Computed example of a mutant assay.
Amino acid sequence: MKLLRFVAAALPALLIASPAAAYWEFGHETFARIAYANVTPRTRVAIDRLLAQTPMLETPTCPATTIEGASVWADCVKPLKGPDGKSRFGYAYTWHFQDVDVCAPFTLADACKDGNCVSAQITRDVAILKDKRSSAKDRAQALVFLIHFVGDLHQPLHAGEKHDKGGNDVAAAYGTYSPRRFNLHSVWDGTLAERAITSGPSLVRRYPAAQRRRIAAGTVTDWSRESWQVAHDVVYTSALKGDPCAPSPAKVTLDEATIERIVPVARLEVKRGGLRLAKLLDAALG
């Protein structure tokens, strides 16, 4: 029943799915809660103080004063327009993903040209948060972007794709569930993420220090490469029955056996994203 309620609530977002719509609310909120549970007390205080400044962003329909609200703010503000009728945050559209071909050698050179990709923006946001000369408004916005973008990076179809808009062009069935316009991207954003997060013990908890260090090791580029590899090895390989670089059919079907195999991978991606976000927040604010 929980899954059905979740799907029903998220269906409007699904029907307008785009390469920049990573994870439905439940996924992003879980990333943020994991991070909040694993930062230092000093960092938590700094987060709360900055989130209290987010009304400066003048987005009252997209409140970000809580860690959960902050996690979805970057998606919530996409449709907002200014007095001139133009998009207020249209400049950030490409910041949610990076189109790196899973069937070519890994490189961020083209995908991150001029800094317009998710990994470059994560690095930028951390730098703004570290810079005490940055205004309170700039730091508050950098925080809510960072919380969201680290989640985006760990949705594999935001780190690797096959010239198919991150799987949005690939119609998909999730078991027997196959509404109109459901696609591979939607599966990893919503139904699969929901099942992964709710399978087994809660992911939202304080992890042992050694586990936090192991999972959060590396750089943003390392994490980009890893998520890109997951897109190749798991997302497309499972959808295309073993050959990730084969031409995509009109529609793919993830049967129950396939779903059971990939749920642990989706679950690990959420855990990785949460603990890596905690690492970045500690580095920037602790």
Rank of each mutant, 00 (worst) to 15 (best):
N38H: 06
Q53H: 12
T40W: 02
P60W: 10
P105S: 01
P63W: 08
R42F: 01
R124V: 00
D110A: 14
R49I: 02
V126P: 07
R44K: 15
A46D: 00
T61N: 14
A111K: 08
P41V: 06
A74H: 15
S71Y: 13
P79V: 02
G69R: 10
A104G: 00
Y93S: 09
A104D: 07
D110T: 12
C103F: 01
W95A: 13
C117M: 10
C112S: 04
A92P: 01
H96I: 09
S87K: 13
F97Y: 15
A120F: 01
P60M: 10
I128D: 06
I128W: 04
Q98L: 13
R124A: 13
G85L: 06
D114H: 06
P55C: 03
T54Y: 02
F89R: 10
L80H: 03
L57D: 11
C103R: 02
T54K: 11
Q98R: 13
A92L: 12
I122E: 11
V45D: 07
T123I: 04
L129C: 11
C117A: 06
R49F: 00
A111Y: 03
R42Q: 14
I67H: 07
P79W: 03
L50F: 07
T54M: 04
Q121L: 00
A109D: 15
D75R: 12
D125L: 05
V77K: 11
E68C: 10
Q98K: 08
T123N: 13
Y93M: 08
V118Q: 04
